[in-house]
Amino acid sequence: MPDHPPPAPELTAADIRHIARLACLSPTDAQIADYQTNLAAVLGYVGHLRTLDLAGVAPLATPLPTTGPMDPDEPGQMLPPATLLKMAPATDGPFIAVPKVLGESEGGGGA
């Protein structure tokens, strides 16, 4: 890795808002300003990797030499619905309650 990092990429407030929308987050103006400096600094640091010679190197997503053994496809134990419903923040009878899905106003979130 070189001693002097490449310049940090410019991240505009619009860039940050775009990433936040993808991540389903609603950053405050202060957070956006923080990301513009700290996130850019981290991206500048990790940008070192692109200076390495990676021609012909295959990506490695997991250190495991092989995939795990497959289990037979048969029903197993599962948690009772009542137990799962108990964890939910809001319920309506045997269902998890959610707010209105259709017809949400623009800017209501990044779903």
């Binding site: 389903c24 964890m87 939910a88 923040p89 809001a90 998890i96 707010p99 949400e104 979130g109």
Partner: peptide, 20 residues
């Protein structure tokens, strides 16, 4: 939705706002 913290929504806000 299924577990964990759920925010309180303002009138007119929907599912997307709930996530964020």
């Amino acid at each position: 939705i299924r577990y964990g913290h759920r925010a309180t929504l303002a009138p007119g806000e929907g599912l997307g706002a709930l996530y964020c």
